[in-house]
Amino acid sequence: MEILSTVTLVVAAFITALSCFAESTRRAIIFLSIQAIAIGSVTLVRCLIDLIVGLNIEALIHFFIAFAEWFSAAVVVPLILYWGVVKTENAFDTPVIGVRRLAILVASTATLFIVLWIFQPQTSQGEMITLSFCMLMFSFSAFLMVTRRDSLKILVGLNMAENSLYPLLAEIPTMLVPLILALMIFVTAIGTYIVVEAYRDHGSLLVDRWRWLSE
């Protein structure tokens, strides 16, 4: 595992943790975009170097795939969510469990991760680091989803969870990457469409204001 990749994953995990505390929907979307940029940039730069050095078709295809992955996660998906904000409102809310409790939860999860990683056998530390960071980011994204009432922030959390799996997607056949990306964009578009429709029906982005089901 290269040091640069590790640093990028640490930065991406830190941004994901920060997004848990974002007050406005717009800020949460910005965090989503930065997280995606951080996760995808190393692969993108590596593919670019391969392309410049190798100058072959295979390197070109890999570069395009990496770029598509990076572009969809860092630009397309945030733009779809931003369209949702334009159609509705930029909602402000705080975590339902309170900022302090959430901070303790995030810090303890990060600490637990570090402790578990340190106590791994030396041989498997390198192999497990990508999967471990993915799981850490996935947990932070889950915190964002479960502690917010703003439906668009919940969608941001969902996309952050999807982004956190991107380092693992590097292993899959290149032909499948565009399909998976298209599917993820499709799900985000559906989610945003439903939120916009719900806002039209209920006049609010907050899911607890939609509560006919519990009545």
């Binding site: 439906s151 969902l158 989610g191 439903i194 939120v195 719900a198 209920h202 939609w210 089901l213």
Partner: peptide, 19 residues
């Protein structure tokens, strides 16, 4: 009105599960 909340709930649960 009911359909949008139900659909959103469905989306979140199943999108996470798809991951």
């Amino acid at each position: 009105k009911e359909s949008t909340e139900a659909a959103f709930k469905y989306l979140i649960i199943t999108a996470i599960s798809a991951l």
